[in-house]
Write a protein that binds this DNA or RNA. Structure first.
Lengths: 341, 341
DNA sequence: TTGTAAGCGTTATCAA
DNA sequence: TTGATAACGCTTACAA
């Protein structure tokens, strides 16, 4: 094994002081062109790379961002995180950041992990996924002055039990302080899916989603409802809410089809639900454009995951790569795309 | 924000020297019980956690292990990595290690990334997935004395063009120096799938996999061939090789069914191929037990991903948490499970 | 058993 | 524009 190349090695090789080498790297404008060129040449020749650990001790920044990896729930929607992670890793690396993974059983466990990661590894920031109503994580991070971005907008404080109708999802419930987030417009997605079915001649279009109060679910339901409303169509009784899963989707679809005036097509809030519904209904759309949708030829709403990941990194940089007071948080709402099959 | 808690804070609080605090953490047996208890209490009260960066500077160990995250190819088999990653993150964290992600376009790019990660972040080890014939990564890592484990056994040097028949996959081709690896016995999986079909009364069981020379593919083919041989059945002409994909699976299945004496059932090397084959053949098994297989009710071979991940960490610890000369590398071959549907 | 001193590789401060 | 010095928080060697 060769000697470890440190900044001292480079300094000796280029016949300058350590500090000058450091300046070439961190404040190039302070160094004369000729000197800089010589130093850069030495760096190249010696294959020098600054030690993150040493740099971190001095600057307090680790250039590490953390993301939670969840146990793929039903496997169908799980690959969404997979693609998001890949995009995140790629974009982060071009910005000089690395992604570290962590797991947690629930929100409380996740917060304990924040504490641990921050104290021992000095993590620079967190990317949170799967935001939901009553999410306690963002308040904790904000309260501890930890930079973070969520993939998924804030859905408000507590689940509101009695809120059936209306468009509750559109109110981003009184989050104490807004934070940076990136999200995909789920309502626009289900609206597009509904429009697609309407264009195909359907008039009775049903919806299968999750029970009211789930934020993401309410949003997707609202998109369907809006699209139906704009077409002047009645939606009374055409909506079902159930937990996620293939069998649940089939059951809910059966119920809808048993109505006196049943739907002829169904928009679903997930590919899992859609797959189940398809067993009993010909015209069904799913959500997330997972491999299952592609494999079974189901029309589905596709989220622009790589772009969402890129935006998260972008927002993070705005938070991190600055010396002044933090900018006002930014929010990004991306449009999904309907993949017609 | 409270003051940063360092080892000095703890020392003051417990009325001992910094060194004693360090000893409590790293060499508890050197400290008197009473003192140790007092120090631990202070650590608890102050919520102290040793700074990884400072520790790393002294010890040269980062307690970080790296894994590549691949762009989900066809999405169907992609979720395998997802589940493996989750298991890895979980097990690693209980051993005090964190998982960092990286991407790479190909083997050469991956090696460049090793260089970068090692030089700047002092990574402790790598976990390699998707081993293949002619894999240049292991030689590089071994040559640079970097600890690593592969998920997937070494498949030998170069793809061997003219090797059609036999059981080439069973020869783990002259790897210069064996290394630690964990793998799942693919041949056992396809053998089980074949056995399942034979038990159902089939006598002509075909196989659709990838072109010869791919290591993993040859192994899975060998399992089918062995099972057929043990049952005294002829396999001549019953095997097809194609690139992965649903349509490719369908095409290969059509070809097999067009034979004079066609198969009545087909074992496939992936769920993608299986899904395609199923369009034209009733009795088909897949491989990987992905969400697609579950959703479409296809029998498939399931890999014990969490266990594989755990074993990888176990092997890594053997390599890392030792002071003497490294142990002889260990290899772990896990048995898959057939999920009958 | 506990304390003192040195040093890991970097960057911020300040003087030349 | 460049260089000397100190400091970040920790652990290893050695002295008390």
């Amino acid at each position: 094994m060769a000697e470890k190349t440190t900044i001292t090695t480079v300094a000796r090789h280029a016949r300058v002081s350590r500090q000058t080498v450091s300046n070439v790297l961190n404040a190039p404008h302070l160094v004369r062109d000729e000197t800089r060129a010589r130093v850069l040449a030495s760096i190249e020749v010696l294959g020098y790379r600054a030690s993150q650990a040493a740099r971190q001790m001095r600057t307090g920044r680790s250039r590490l961002i953390a993301v939670r990896i969840e146990p793929t729930r039903d496997g169908i929607n799980g690959s969404v995180l997979d693609r998001f992670l890949h995009g995140l890793t790629e974009t982060a690396s071009t910005a000089g950041y690395r992604v570290v993974l962590y797991t947690a059983a629930d929100d409380a466990g996740e917060i304990a992990t924040y504490d641990e990661l921050l104290a021992s590894h000095d993590l620079d920031a967190f990317v949170l996924t799967s935001t939901h109503r009553g999410d306690i994580r963002t308040a904790w991070l904000a309260g501890h002055d930890v930079p973070f971005v969520t993939f998924g907008r804030p859905w408000g404080a507590q689940p509101e039990p009695g809120r059936g109708g209306g468009h509750p999802a559109r109110q981003h419930g009184g989050a104490a302080e807004p934070h940076a987030w990136v999200d995909v417009d789920g309502a626009a997605g289900t609206a597009a899916a509904t429009g697609h079915l309407l264009a195909a001649g359907h008039r009775r279009v049903g919806f299968i989603g999750w029970p009211a109060g789930s934020g993401v679910g309410d949003d997707r339901r609202a998109g369907w409802q809006d699209a139906m409303g704009r077409a002047g169509l009645d939606v009374a009784g055409l909506s079902a809410g159930t937990s996620d899963g293939i069998d649940q989707g089939e059951r809910a679809a059966r119920d809808l089809l048993a109505l006196p005036d049943p739907p002829t097509a169904i928009v679903c809030a997930s590919d899992s639900l859609g797959l189940g519904a398809r067993r009993v209904c010909g015209a069904v759309t799913g959500f997330d454009d997972t491999a299952v949708a592609a494999a079974t030829g189901m029309t589905s709403v596709s989220q622009p995951l790589p772009e969402a990941a890129g935006r998260c990194v972008q927002l993070l940089r705005r938070l991190l790569d600055r010396d002044g007071p933090p900018d006002t948080p930014e929010q990004v709402l991306l449009a999904p795309r309907l993949i017609v099959r």
